[in-house]
Amino acid sequence: MKVLVAVKRVIDYNVKIRVKADHSDVDLTNVKMAMNPFCEIAVEEAVRLKERGVATEVVAVTVGPKAAQEQLRTALALGADRAIHVETEERVESLAAAKLLAKVVEEEQPGLVILGKQAIDTDNNQTGQMLAALAGLPQGTFASEVVVDGDKVQVTREIDGGLQTVELTLPAIVTTDLRLNEPRYAKLPDIMKAKKKPLDVKSPADLGVDVASKLTLLKVESPAERKGGIKVGSVDELVDKLKNEAKVL
C-alpha cells in the first residue's frame, strides 16, 4: 500500500510572532521556519507503517513556495521515499490546498493519506477533512492510534471528553493528533541520502486547480494585551485579593 503524507512549511513553533506595522499580516521575513509539528507526526506514522510492512512506499507532498522543498527534504530524510512539490508563491487557503492534494491523490492512488490535524500558523484544522470530502473518502481525524487491517483501518480519535474508535474502508484520510507518536530526528547520513531522493515539482496549473480564494484577509492585529498583574507575598494575601479586589471567590 502506498501512503501519501502531506507536510507544510510554517513558522517554527517556538518563535514569538510579530504582526506587521501595516496590519496586513504576520511578519515572516527572517524568521525560522520548520515543518509543522503535526506534519512531523504524520511523517513518523507513515514511516512506521512502512517499517511494519504495511506501507510499501511513502510519498511526501507539500503545497507552497520554493523554500518548502526544505521540508520535503526533511520528510525524505525521515524515511519518505520520494516527494512531490506543488509550487506556488500565492497564499493558498485550505480549500485550494485540499483541491491540489485531491489531484495528487487521484494521480498517485494511495491506500492511505496522512495529514496533521492543523497547521500552527492558520490554526484552521480543515485541509484533511476537505481533502476527504473532495476525494470522496472517509476520514479519521485527530488520530491517536491507527491500525491498518486488510482493506480497513481502525482509527482511535481524540474527541472532547475522551476517545472514539471508528473503522474506515480504505483508501482513507487520517489526520494526526499530538499523541499519535513521538517523531524521530533525522540522522546526518539520512539527510545526505535524502538529497538524492526524487522530488517532482508541479504547478497548480499542471494540476488544473485555481488557487484563488473568496476569503480575503482584511487585517491582522495583535491580541488585546493583558494588564500587568501583581505578585502577592502569601496565600492569605492571594485569597484576600481574589475575594475583595477581583471578587471572583
Binding site: Y13, V19, V26, D123, L215, L217, L218, E221, P223
Partner: peptide
C-alpha cells in the same frame, strides 16, 4: 491565528 498571538479579520 498563530496560537492566538494574532487576530485575523477575514471577509
Amino acid at each position: 491565528i498563530y496560537a492566538g498571538n494574532a487576530i485575523a479579520t477575514v471577509k
